[in-house]
């Protein structure tokens, strides 16, 4: 009962924060510097880890597919398998997971620290809403940066698959054949589909992590607890949302 209450409270708080942030959308043009800073944090600094992970997801997909398909001569379909699963599912999903781990945790830590050290209170007395200058730029930045991360994740993952397809002995498919199969079965629609998914994930991760950070109570010890909670809740939400968003977008 207590847990249900806590969940409902959390949902209510997140929804409230969402609407409060959105009500300041008009102030976004004047928050250019903050927006750029958040873009830098969310996009630019997250790129390396996203690229590395995507590359290896691509290779593993190709490896598994090649192994499973070698027996019935369907190796030519590796390209399409890697292409589709990367674009529709694994690209968005893994990028969102990395976002939760890398950006979500940082956001929660920063806002929780601001809360604990009364910086948020100082903003309140100054009548500068945290939703306006702390949450809104982050939400805008994640919406702009997520497609960029996703397209890079896709391309790097596809490339990783092609490397395995070419050099692993039991797969042994030329990059031309690999990419031909990929192109034949993966449509831009699929990439768009993945991006829409990623936008939902990224937006929710940032919003939830902001909310958990801003609702931190107590001393510095609570900052760590808030970060853990932010990441765990984000990961659960990504997995749950994945099912529903996939269903809606299918």
């Amino acid at each position: 009962m207590k847990q249900i209450n806590a969940i409902l409270e959390g949902v209510g708080s997140v929804v409230q924060l969402l609407f409060r942030s959105l009500s300041y959308t008009g102030s976004l043009p004047r928050q250019g510097a903050r927006f750029i800073e958040q873009c830098y944090m969310i996009g630019y600094t997250t790129l390396p880890i996203v690229a590395i992970l995507s590359f290896f997801i691509g290779t593993v997909l190709a490896l598994e597919a090649g192994y499973a398909m070698q027996d019935f001569g369907a190796k030519e379909f590796i390209g399409s398998l890697v292409g589709l699963s990367m674009a529709r599912e694994l690209g968005p999903m893994m990028t969102a997971v990395l976002l939760a781990g890398r950006v979500g945790s940082a956001i929660t830590a920063e806002l929780a620290s601001m809360k604990v050290y009364q910086e948020i209170d100082a903003l309140t007395t100054m009548n500068i809403p945290a939703a306006k200058i702390l949450v809104l730029p982050r939400l805008a930045a994640v919406l702009v940066m997520m497609p960029v991360l996703i397209v890079i994740a896709n391309i790097v993952g596809w490339f990783g698959g092609s490397v395995v397809a070419r050099y692993v002995s039991y797969v042994g498919i030329s990059p031309q054949a690999y990419f031909a199969a990929l192109r034949h079965y993966t449509k831009f629609k699929d990439v768009m589909n993945g991006m829409e998914k990623a936008e939902v994930f990224g937006f929710v991760v940032v919003l939830v992590c902001c909310d958990i950070g801003l609702n931190t109570r107590g001393g510095p010890r609570e900052i760590g607890a808030a970060v853990t909670r932010g990441v765990v809740v984000s990961l659960i939400l990504i997995l749950v949302l994945d099912y529903f968003v996939t269903k809606i977008l299918l």
Binding site: C39, G43, L47, P147, V191
Partner: peptide, 10 residues
């Protein structure tokens, strides 16, 4: 630069 790269790749 990062954003333009993204747009180009899309």
């Amino acid at each position: 630069l990062f954003f333009l790269l993204g747009v180009a790749l899309v």
